[in-house]
């Protein structure tokens, strides 16, 4: 590759990560995966129509395939790897496994980020709010039923913990 850029720094999961010698047209998804070794974000459509690559960018859930990586300097990026940094699954991750919301698992990391984002902003969503919030995350295996069950479980447990 001839068209490289001077290095830039990204703030990923609370750490400063250097990106060197990259092609400047690379998406954040590509850089996370191929340059920073964070394979949790998945690419399945490259056009924001599946949600598998969902990350949080300055607190917003966005498709990392549609973020020009070099434009994300100065932003806080949180990936699925940052949701359970010590390896212990988060409550959402645990509920996905316990409720059978994981089959092939390719959509799962993106959904996990989307559910965390939803419940951070709306701790007690109605089912239709859950469906709307997850309507950007395509799952081809489960038909969504067990995913809804997992979200309901987390909501109920968190509610119990609050009261």
């Amino acid at each position: 590759m001839t068209e490289t850029t001077a290095f830039y720094e990204l703030n990923v999961n609370g750490s400063r990560r250097e990106v060197r010698d990259s092609w400047i047209g690379e998406s954040l998804l590509y850089v996370l995966r191929e340059r920073l070794g964070l394979m949790g974000s998945k690419g399945a459509c490259e056009q924001g129509e599946c949600g598998s690559c969902t990350v949080m960018l300055d607190g917003d859930a966005v498709c990392s395939c549609l973020v020009l990586s070099a434009s994300a300097v100065g932003s806080e990026i949180l990936t699925v790897e940052g949701l359970a940094p010590n390896g212990e699954p988060s409550d959402v991750q645990r509920a996905f496994v316990d409720q059978g919301a994981v089959q092939c698992g390719f959509c799962t990391p993106g959904l996990i980020v989307a559910v965390h984002h939803l419940l951070d902003n709306n701790p007690d969503p109605t089912m239709i709010e859950v469906k709307e919030a997850l309507s950007g995350n395509i799952c081809r295996c489960t038909g969504y039923g067990r995913i809804f069950a997992a979200v309901e479980t987390v909501v109920a447990v968190r509610k119990g913990a609050r009261s």
């Binding site: 047209g25 998406s27 395939c65 549609l66 973020v67 932003s75």
Partner: peptide, 27 residues
Amino acid sequence: LLSGGTDTMVEVNFNRSKPESVIALRR
């Protein structure tokens, strides 16, 4: 000029556009 990226990046990812230079406005 790049705003949210939701159009331009699709073109880049799909190999339909190779902009020479990008000014990202999000910050």
